[in-house]
Design a protein around this nucleic acid. Sequence first.
DNA 1: ACCTCACATTACATCGTTGTAAAACGGGGC
DNA 2: GCCCCGTTTTACAACGATGTAATGTGAGGT
Lengths: 333, 333
Amino acid sequence: MRATVKDVARRAGVSPKTVSNVMNGVVPVSGSTRLKVEQAILELDYVPNLSARGLRNGRSGVIALALPDLATPYSAEIAHHVVEVAHEQGWSVQIEETGSDPRREYELMSRARSNLIDGLILNPVVLDESAVKVGVSLPPVVLLGEVSQQLADRVWVDSVAAARDMTLALARTGRRRIAVLGTAEVRHSAAAVLRTRGYQAALDGLGIDLDDSLLIPCEKWTPQTAAHALATYLDSNPLPDALFCFTDSMAIGALSVLWKLGIKVPEDIAVAGFDDIADGQYAVPSLTTVSFDKRLMAREALRLLTERMADRAGEQRVVTVDYSIVQRNSTAS
Amino acid sequence: MRATVKDVARRAGVSPKTVSNVMNGVVPVSGSTRLKVEQAILELDYVPNLSARGLRNGRSGVIALALPDLATPYSAEIAHHVVEVAHEQGWSVQIEETGSDPRREYELMSRARSNLIDGLILNPVVLDESAVKVGVSLPPVVLLGEVSQQLADRVWVDSVAAARDMTLALARTGRRRIAVLGTAEVRHSAAAVLRTRGYQAALDGLGIDLDDSLLIPCEKWTPQTAAHALATYLDSNPLPDALFCFTDSMAIGALSVLWKLGIKVPEDIAVAGFDDIADGQYAVPSLTTVSFDKRLMAREALRLLTERMADRAGEQRVVTVDYSIVQRNSTAS
DNA sequence: ACCTCACATTACATCGTTGTAAAACGGGGC
DNA sequence: GCCCCGTTTTACAACGATGTAATGTGAGGT
């Protein structure tokens, strides 16, 4: 049987509450009793029962992190940082996968209410109206990434501006027929919409007419689907000058296809990505991308979340994280 | 305020215990009362408090998954599968990162004891003696991956055999000076030791003398460190025939370095990895690797874990998951 | 009408921790 | 020696759900 405060108290010759006081350190405890208690804790190898603590004071010390798909390098890096930052601050992290299913996104919020979870960091894909219900009797939520409506506190990168800048950067290397990979036809993910918007803004600024045939749709943002989408596209379309993939993962799939087809990057076509995942640096050729500080995102998300827990009523806030265009070999001129 | 069983009971005109009976479905409840209760639950938007439930019946429905580093594609894929399989079975998953620090590995086990966690799936790196203490008053544990001692239930791939087979496969393409990347000089991770052993066994079988200068050490198994290790190595050593990297991640780093040096893969040197991460398929050139079913590993780990929870005393078990050598372009002859 | 028996429901206690409010303690001043 | 006051410790109750054991209900048999 596991030792409880009672056992420790008996052994130390004090009351249970005193043991609790020693552990929590809010109520002052005299040096001598503190020592006795600490001794007893060690001897009995006592560990507090977090369920009981959670029941008693209404918070569990656990937050949930919900991502579309953990196997995605981008999600994995985000998860890594959130877990690490959370741990520094004494939080545990429960991971949930939404599979980019909006039903699941909402279900999570309601599940979180069953406690054991003090807050939720959600990387939504198609959230939108499905979860407008946020706010009422739901746990504190911070959204991570693009959303089309302001539903809750949120941390993001201005991907309209980033996509615009990347498009401009590609144009600056002399490319004119710039295709994008990852536009959405069915499920309009906020990220796809915003990045497409940035791309169009850049073309407008350059005085280039938008050519719809340069919008290569790709519903799932994985190397596999990207590779397939690009291969199919190239079957019946001329090769563009440049290819701006809406994520690095897709870019990696694209590089693979281009290599198999004997198309040289960056000589025949420039390729750029978005997210700056670790592997992009080691892609062949190394990948030009939109980079931003994921650890900072994690830190800010956690900050917003803890502040929200302290004050459920405050105004909704948005943190915009800086980005930069990182030029690597895949777009050399 | 959140509704409790009491509120639901009052509204449905029954006792709290009856509400509990309806929810848990073990004790029979008549149709009419069940309906009343379900109605009340809906009206009040009642969600059970898991902390209270956990306190009362000693299990929280949460398991922990501890990995060295979530940002690693291999870890991420494992996590993805564990989370998905666990979710299917109604478990939640708490993620912990060990940073391959044995102290942290042990700390986790003791933390797990504070409940909120019914079991632990641990991917150890240097566990060994540090956690021999498993078993006594610790939560049910399943180890995932290589270990040097049999400490607990465990799921693994026979990486001695796999490394041997991969080495033989490289030899079969006519390579003789086969280097390995990822041997350990400082912290002897079990995986490094076992894979090196398989490599040596293969050379023995082929009648090739072991050439120590073909063992390229690399403590951390990331593309970055691998790239650095390989670049440094090639500065002062002749190019081997083939390079067997102990993980795909390292292989990706290696491919990047080779490409930058203008060394052609597979013409000048064959490159192989281990783990079959998704990106290996899209590497340039696509990566030959040791493949195994990660979802099966997750499923088996969870099976062992739940069985262990049911029977803390049973014999320790080992599940060995099959592997296969997947030939791709990086080793074409 | 009465008793039995199976089945449905209930009251109560309990899980381990901690906030509240009250009690015990101890030191200093008169 | 006594009282007062600040500090430390304590008893008790409560968080919410559920197992135990006891109570209540009704149908069926005689």
